[in-house]
Amino acid sequence: MTATTVTHDLVSVENVSLSFGSVRALRDVSLTLQPGEITALVGDNGAGKSTLVRCLSGIHRPDDGTVRFDGQPAHFSTPEDARNAGIETVHQNLALVEDLTVWQNLFLNREIVHGFGPLAILDKRAMKREAQRMVSTLAVNVPSVTSTVRRLSGGQRQAVSICRAAGFSSKLVIMDEPTAALGVQETERVEKLITKLREDGHAVLLISHNFAQVMRLADHVWVMRAGRCVAGRRIAQTTGEEIVALITGAQQS
């Protein structure tokens, strides 16, 4: 890392606040994410999880405080900036185009082309080959990279979306409720995929309401309540009951 960093945090959020009109969505939030770890972000609805995530992925800009990514101060003004820096987001609605094929979705707006400008010519063969490599690397179960997303199941779509996030040498993959809409078997498969991301060296920020899942997957958990980050725990040193108590406020940090 660069000389300016004191620690080796991948992300450090320092005293970040953000208001929408009179609503204070984030109040003085500070937390860190370690490289190569799965970090969970939990909290009740409206606690500010999604807002914080949007600050990281370039959708919102904090009113106050700083976000450092990989040691550098991060001033993302668009999601594109965040993506270029190495932060990928798997959106809750997955952001897939149903009528396009798997490979087209994987390479949407990142097309491999000859030439430049709006009339740059697509290198379809290279994109199919690369897409094949991407799904094989993560052992994603899709019938074929040339099938349209419309024909995929919910779990397969989630997998394609995660595959896209992981596929472009991203350092951090943010996932917002990746298994909320999935069945038991598909949830298991996606969880396997998330662990695989960690094995491959990606850091993962996981928003989840499923405490069992958080305990199963994460290395560290941050708890948010009413716009504040109220506690952080190593998973190995906490219990599901404690996290619930922290979320509801029954236990103060």
Partner: peptide, 19 residues
């Protein structure tokens, strides 16, 4: 072309394409 790819994408799902 890349533009053609975008035309299909924005027609299929403008929100996903924007994302």
């Amino acid at each position: 072309t890349r533009t053609g790819n975008w035309v299909f994408a924005i027609g299929g799902s403008a929100d996903s394409a924007r994302a």
